[in-house]
Design a protein around this nucleic acid. Structure first.
Lengths: 259, 259
DNA sequence: CTCGTTTTTGCACGTTTATGCACGTTTGTA
DNA sequence: TACAAACGTGCATAAACGTGCAAAAACGAG
């Protein structure tokens, strides 16, 4: 290591030190390698320019931290939820009044909404309402209530009361459990109440459920399976489950086609 | 950890301590790291300026995570609105029920809300509701209605009806015109109706108005000036206008002080 | 091999950053 | 109200920094 080191080799070494120790102190490394501080600083500057590390006063720190954080926070929706959202959006016809539940799947529905269909969309989620703002051809109705942070939806008596004045064509329901015996279920009692109320205000209730929700029972029951009109599933859901749904009287929607 | 620590590394360490312990005691950390209190205080000041934490006497407390993101995402509001928002936030006392109007000034109020005061905040703006989500000590009530995109607030009979069930301590009102003769006015009729209804549901109505709103009359009148209890203005508002407000019976709030 | 070019390295210089101390002010508490 | 702790600011010092330059080494074309 002390016999002369190639420049690029030294840079590799710096990155390794960074990986092992979690930091680099410029002066210390310079002394260790018998080089001037300037040389090491130059290396660090170049590595930083190449995006390999974060330059700080006195040395360098891993760049990964700040970046990894952001990725985690803004969590990209899984492909499956996008697929379901798109399929569900395709079920909406012009001039219909549609109730949209809260949640990430519902958010994907919003992102795939058909343009210029003059729909009215009812939601009890402030997040969904904000996401709907750019769609100028859509009339947005917000159902108020007490904000339930975990799902970012309004719940409580006020929400149920507000819903009672609505007559919608479709309600897109998001749940955390879809099971033939346990029915449609979710993790919060108040939320379950609201979901049930919303379902009663729509001619059809369409369930949106990605694979991990299937054959799972969450603590609070929204309603029995057969009260729903249809269910949107991932394309590659087990055929046996699709059959089960159809036997329960639900239309099964997959990838835009009814099967 | 004991061998000298890089400055930036130390800042990360501080954030980690904050995350794990939920607080930082400046003196204790300084002793632990063998540095002067000044250095740690400087770090905390800078981290606070960067929006990574909330500086308090004796150390620091966590700032809601999602908030840091928001700061970056939405362009920074004009300095004057920040100033007004901060001043308004300072008027809120523990356990009070507060109604917050929509708009960018109100958003600045939210960003400066006092922590851990166990307030209940009522809003008819989905945007504000979403912004409030990170404040876990705050109970959020959303008033539903028809979404009025221009201001991102819910309006209409449903909103007024929902408001009728509320009794609040303060209503922070945003308007586009403040004039002694024309009163408090705004650009949309429905919005004016809702603002009036909200004002009637609060013991005190505090107007938030940046300079460009002063001595301006917008098309729709919310209410006469004297129905408001107070007004938050920019520090360097013309003294003559402040005097005018006081003559109309309003308390004038500027930069946190009553004058 | 030779000559010109490029790369690398160290040094000199002025600039910026980090830190601790001194001082007067603000804040929390008794 | 009084007092001590915590605070912010200004300042001085030392470390770290970037830039420009020059010498040495590596390189490549002829």
């Amino acid at each position: 290591m002390l016999g002369t080191m190639l420049t690029q080799e030294r840079k590799q070494y710096l990155l390794q030190v960074l990986k092992e120790k979690g930091k680099i102190k410029a002066k210390a490394v310079a002394a260790e390698l018998g080089l001037s501080d300037d040389t090491i600083r130059r290396d660090l500057r170049e590595l930083a320019a190449a995006g390999k590390l974060q330059r700080v006063h006195g040395g360098a720190l891993p760049k990964a931290l700040a970046e990894a954080d952001l990725d985690v926070r803004q969590g990209i929706a899984s492909e499956s939820k996008q697929e379901i959202g798109k399929t569900a959006a395709g079920l909406i016809e012009p001039d219909q009044v549609v109730i949209i539940d809260g949640g990430t799947t519902a958010m994907q529905l919003v992102k795939n909404l058909p343009q210029n269909q003059n729909n009215t969309i009812v939601t009890h989620s402030p997040t969904i309402a904000v996401a709907l703002a750019p769609y100028h051809s859509i009339n947005v109705i917000v159902l108020g209530g007490t904000l339930f942070r975990h799902s970012m939806v309004n719940v409580g008596a006020a929400t149920v009361e507000a819903a009672s004045h609505i007559h919608a064509d479709i309600f897109f329901l998001g749940v955390t459990g879809v099971d033939v015996k346990a029915g449609l279920s979710t993790g919060d009692l108040e939320e379950a109440h609201v979901k049930r109320a919303l379902s009663q205000r729509a001619a059809d209730t369409i369930v949106m459920a990605s694979s991990e929700k299937l054959q799972v029972a969450s603590p609070y029951v929204v309603m029995p399976l057969k009260k729903a009109s249809g269910i949107v599933l991932e394309r590659d859901t087990a055929p046996s489950f699709k059959k089960l749904m159809r036997k329960s009287g639900l239309d099964v929607f997959v990838g835009g086609k009814t099967r």
